[in-house]
């Protein structure tokens, strides 16, 4: 069913997704309140699986922690195979705009290839890069940069 609020929250992090789920709480099959994720829901994916992996500076290789997260993503996506999804690649601000666009694309590609290798059908996924254009954390030190170097698996609301 269409849930336009979730689409609007596409670029935001887990909090925004949780809020839009709360706003949809009175719709059928979406009875969970924020904090009590229904198995197989988008909130379940964000809260219990983890929708994002992080990268080292200027790197596009997955970290061991990132691979562990993607293993869980693959398992969940195999179970709930009605979802299509978009892998968003991002970079921190310490790079030029053009390079970061390409770097974000390469990170998204790393995730895509990993999920395909874990048996997820390539036709369910697309990738997009936002470069350094959509940071989730804004400050000028490593605590923010490390959160912004990420690839986020965003389930399509209408799927």
């Amino acid at each position: 069913m269409p849930m336009p609020l979730i689409r609007a929250a596409k670029f935001a992090g887990a909090i925004a997704v949780a809020l839009s789920m709360a706003a949809c709480a009175n719709t059928p099959n979406q009875t969970g309140l924020a904090g009590a994720a229904v198995p197989g829901s988008q909130q379940d994916f964000v809260v219990n699986v983890g929708d994002r992996v992080f990268f080292e500076t200027d790197q596009t290789d997955l970290t061991p922690q990132g691979r562990a997260t993607l293993d869980k993503q693959a398992q969940w996506l195999a179970q709930y195979n009605r979802y299509t999804f978009t892998i968003e690649g991002h970079a921190d601000e310490r790079g030029t705009r053009e390079y970061n666009i390409a770097l974000g694309a390469k990170r998204a590609q790393s995730v895509r290839e990993y999920l395909i290798a874990r048996g997820i059908d390539a036709s369910r996924m697309r990738t997009i890069s936002y470069g350094k254009e959509r940071p989730v954390a804004v400050c000028d030190d490593i605590s923010c940069w490390s959160q912004n170097r990420r690839a986020v698996t965003v389930l399509n609301a209408s799927s």
Binding site: E98, I101, A102, A105, K106, Q109, S110, S129
Partner: peptide
């Protein structure tokens, strides 16, 4: 795929740019 970082040729007849193909550009 994604195209980015465009610029005109000096005669204005061409646009040069990057194309993303998989992880490469």
């Amino acid at each position: 795929g994604m195209t980015f970082s465009p610029r005109f040729s000096p005669d204005g007849q061409r646009v040069i740019m990057s194309l993303q193909q998989g992880g490469n550009s």
